[in-house]
Design a protein around this nucleic acid. Sequence first.
DNA 1: GACAGCCTACGACACCTGTAGTAGATTCCT
DNA 2: AGGAATCTACTACAGGTGTCGTAGGCTGTC
Lengths: 127, 127
Amino acid sequence: MMAKREVELGEAELAVLRVLWETGPQTVREVMARLHERGRKVAYTTVLTFLTRMEQKGVVSSDKDEHAYVYRARVTKEQVAKTRVRSLLDQLYDGAAAPMVLHLIENERFTDEEIARLRRLLKELDS
Amino acid sequence: MMAKREVELGEAELAVLRVLWETGPQTVREVMARLHERGRKVAYTTVLTFLTRMEQKGVVSSDKDEHAYVYRARVTKEQVAKTRVRSLLDQLYDGAAAPMVLHLIENERFTDEEIARLRRLLKELDS
DNA sequence: GACAGCCTACGACACCTGTAGTAGATTCCT
DNA sequence: AGGAATCTACTACAGGTGTCGTAGGCTGTC
């Protein structure tokens, strides 16, 4: 897979990307509607600005469909997650993942099912 | 403990904070030296600016010692970690911690010792 | 006591991000 | 056809962050 790194995304831009990840390719107006549903009341042109900028950054692309451009994500949530997590890891734990996992397990809540899942995963790590 | 939230820290500011966490209270000049050691070549006044701004944000404080101000962190690495992790969780996983732990376990490396440690921790979660 | 060196206070500036208004082109409805 | 609704392209702008330079004050050393 190609490496594209270095793409910085602001919090609001990420919210737009999430809309695309979760509800697929759509027009500016539709993205705006989804954002509004999520309590993010931004103007139409604001959404347009975000999408335009993100297209320049290469994280979304657009195709003219009928009368309006339809935007779609060009990066997956996993790719973004990986980068963000990595960066957080580097900034706080010198890149070591274990402390973060410890932190999460100690500070966040998990359902029994999730715990079981984690336990299974750990078992597999026992190479 | 008081809640102080909402304090935003840039990447460079965080680097300064790390220096204070790792080598204790020190002067601007000393912080600058530590940053240089870590490959971050910033000017003296840049470091001063960071520390001044961070003092206004309340994350560091200073005391005049002899001839120069000595700065020290007023927030712990744990506090910052908690906020950052939380924010990342909200932005990518709707606040759910499990997916992130899964992600970490699947994508990052752990030593046998760390795995054992995690396993013990999970056992404790079994209420 | 005068100069060199370090210290802090301010002011600057560029770039990024969040937000939006306006204008011109296109489409749709009646 | 003509006005209304859309859409996209620009422009703008404030606040935050990364980076410094300059000026003025204090100190320490001959």
